[in-house]
Design a binder for these strands. Structure first.
Length: 242
DNA sequence: GTGAATGTTAACAG
DNA sequence: CCTGTTAACATTCA
């Protein structure tokens, strides 16, 4: 479930709990509980794939990792790794990682890199890219401190749309192409999000898990040596810069 | 039973 | 100390 747009969509479904008082909080793992009990849920916000529950005396950061799941007013049989129970209704997290944020969200997070946020700043991201000049672009795209909220699907689609080969060296990609990549990443994230909001699922893919790309060219699948993640791309449409 | 999947990070090697 | 690699973790579905 969790790539940036999915988390933002999830946040929207949780909004009815905003302003409500937590009767009982808990979970296993490092999930802190006592300090939340009796507190009002002031806000729910996101930073990329991070879901934040804000209280007057601290915030809880929830990360769904690969298998995490949040259910509303619904329980599964297995233990909850995170939960907030209200007078009416409850939020239940399974296999999620929850912990107390060290500081306020504003202190901890920089929203200029969050591809889904209104404060996203393309110029700032370009600046950060200079430090990553030696790395391949596929790696940098998944770096949450540079492209916050981008996951494997978005990475594949953004590279295809920008016509950049995933193994291109970041520093060798022409500035205009980088600009295009950022623009396409933002554009694709919006499609992803809109699909979730309207249909509940995103099935809009030009290359990801496709045999043929949107333009009809053949798609190559490669397993990245380090991360073991799969990348899909079109040799025909995506130029390799090195 | 097997394999695969939207992710991160602690631990280790060099 | 820094850099890169590996392993580990949790779950559901086909």
């Amino acid at each position: 479930m969790p790539e940036g747009p999915s988390i933002l969509h999830l946040r929207n479904t949780l909004l009815p709990f905003k302003g409500k008082v937590v009767k009982q909080a808990g979970g296993y793992g490092p999930m802190p509980a006592e300090w939340i009990n009796g507190k009002k849920l002031l806000d729910i916000c996101t930073w990329g794939k991070h879901l934040l529950f804000v209280f007057s005396n601290g915030s809880v950061r929830v990360h769904l990792m690969l298998f995490g799941e949040i259910r509303i007013n619904e329980r599964k049989t297995v233990n909850r790794s995170f939960f907030l129970e209200f007078a009416k209704g409850e939020i239940n997290g399974y296999v999620v990682k929850a912990e107390k944020l060290k500081g306020t969200p504003e202190e901890v997070y920089d929203w200029r890199t969050d591809i889904l946020h209104k404060d996203f700043d393309a110029a700032h991201v370009k600046l950060l890219l200079k430090k990553e000049a030696g790395k391949t672009i596929d790696d940098v795209l998944m770096d949450q401190n540079v492209f916050t909220g981008v996951g494997n699907k978005i990475r594949n689609e953004a590279l295809y749309r920008a016509g950049i080969h995933p193994l291109s060296i970041t520093g060798k990609i022409p500035a205009a192409k980088i600009t295009m990549l950022i623009k396409e990443a933002v554009a694709y994230v919006k499609i992803f999000y809109k699909q979730l909001e309207t249909k509940g699922v995103n099935d809009n893919f030009s290359v990801y898990k496709q045999a043929y790309a949107a333009d009809g060219s053949e798609v190559t699948m490669q397993i990245l040596p380090r991360t073991k993640r799969k990348i899909y791309f079109s040799e025909h449409k995506q130029q390799l810069f090195q």
